[in-house]
Amino acid sequence: MKKETMVAIFLGLLFGGIVAVFISFKSKDIELAKNKVIAPQKGKTSFPNTTVIEQQPLVLDEPADRAIFENSIIRLKGSAAKDSLIVVQSPIKDLIINNKQEKFDLEFPLALGENSIKIVVYPKEKQFRPQEKFIKVYFIDSEL
């Protein structure tokens, strides 16, 4: 065989090999692109139709449990979810408030002696559970 023929065969095989490797890699990429991704890609997790709503807790700033007062009228101060229904009950008074703002400041009467007060908040979003606080405060007249 002539030298030129040998070179031509060698170059043909080399070129054919290169093309084969190229096609093989390309077909793998096409195959991967066609398949659906099952596992979520890192950093790209999203829930387009889900909104996470956190329930605002009932916080009672005043008065403290077992506080002693010399006045028969106190103020209940705290915060709860906006537009929730607040029910305050004691042996001498029932109060129902639509909490239009987060902060509330309610005037509440006390009976002489011990006053058991239960505060329950019913959130506007009905899927949330009601929240409760129970306190005992004392009205001890300074004249006693």
Binding site: V87, Q89, S90, P91, L112, G113, E114, S116, I117, K118, V120, E132, F134, I140, L144
Partner: peptide
């Protein structure tokens, strides 16, 4: 005790 008050005991719940 400074003061002792004899009263009724109430339970308030829901």
């Amino acid at each position: 005790a400074n003061v002792v008050l004899i009263d009724e005991n109430f339970l308030v719940d829901s």
